[in-house]
């Protein structure tokens, strides 16, 4: 049972990680605590769901449309809620408020659209196949989720550290002003960052929607709260930190349910955050040298 629960924890944790990646990316590059990330995740899931229910698209296409949907909402959010603030050089606090407002609007729109119903992907969107070996029960969907998350993380790291676009993103993260002098167009970079962040959230939305059998307008809110813990624990702006902290939170949560009580899971997750902050205020991977690679200090 321990192995089974660890597996459950890894699956949940990797999706937390995927969700938190986009969250931490925007924080790292733009220094924005994007409180609307949960609603972008939800809209990604909606995009995937409507694609499946209206056009009967298969699983991989649904994931792609979820990514596209999340990416688009995220870019629109940047244009309407953050860009005007950036132009005026408004303090970072303004963008938090702006993102809360945007999040409320996106939530109400979704609520109106769905009449508050809980929706779900059709049962046949993904075949329910479970493998049993060494007493471990693994669902095919769980394996696919882990594979997608690994692919996304490797892809993102490659993009950031091995391509010219990634170099430009990192340059903007260090200093938007200096990168402008070097001929980089920060508008194009922000477009990319917000699109990637939204797309990651959208993919997480579709995956969570399928694996947990539930798509509704509030689905992003509990995740946003956990993503907070994940990115603070992992070190603000750190990509490996987000993934590892995501896994850690997933495992802690799962083991608490398994061996203590389901009611204690959140309490333990937040206690872990508290303890880690006492010992390492910058988070597990937030040491000055670690973060600087993706973010400005």
């Amino acid at each position: 049972m321990l192995m089974q629960q660890l597996l459950n924890g890894i699956v949940v944790g990797s999706v937390y990680g995927l969700f938190a990646l986009g969250f931490t990316l925007i924080f790292g590059v733009n220094h924005i605590m994007n409180m609307a990330h949960g609603t972008i995740f939800m809209w990604g899931a909606f995009a995937g769901l409507y694609a499946v229910t209206l056009f009967d698209v298969p699983f991989p296409v649904a994931v792609l449309i979820g990514a596209l949907g999340g990416g688009l909402v995220s870019v629109i959010l940047d244009w309407t809620a953050f860009r005007p603030l950036r132009k005026q050089g408004a303090p970072e606090f303004s963008s938090i408020v702006s993102s809360i407002g945007a999040s409320l609007i996106l939530l109400s729109l979704a609520q109106q659209l769905t009449a508050t119903r809980v929706m779900r992907f059709p049962f046949d969107i993904f075949p329910i196949v479970a493998f049993n070996f060494f007493g471990l029960r693994i669902q095919l969907l769980q394996l696919v989720i882990i594979a997608i998350v690994v692919l996304m993380v490797v892809g993102l790291l490659y993009y950031l550290y091995r391509t010219s676009f990634g170099r430009q993103i990192r340059a903007v993260a260090v200093s938007e002003h200096t990168s402008k002098l070097l001929g980089i167009n920060p508008t194009a970079i922000n477009f990319q960052v917000f699109f990637i962040s939204g797309a990651l959230a959208g993919i997480a939305g579709v995956l969570i929607g399928i694996v947990f059998n539930s798509v509704h307008f509030m689905m992003g809110e509990p995740l946003l709260l956990r993503a907070f813990v994940v990115i603070i624990l992992g070190g603000l702006g750190s990509i490996p930190g987000a993934l590892i902290a995501g896994l850690l939170i997933g495992i802690i949560q799962t083991l608490t349910v398994a061996y203590l009580s389901a009611g204690l899971a959140d309490a333990l997750v937040f206690s872990t955050l508290f303890l880690v902050l006492l010992v390492r205020p910058t988070g597990l991977f937030g040491g000055a040298s670690a973060v600087a690679r993706v973010t400005r200090r």
Binding site: V11, F212, S214, T254, L255, V257, D266
Partner: peptide, 13 residues
């Protein structure tokens, strides 16, 4: 909690 959607651990238990 009614906001939870992940019941995998509970299911295994």
């Amino acid at each position: 909690l009614s906001s939870d959607t992940d019941f995998l651990a509970l299911a295994t238990k």
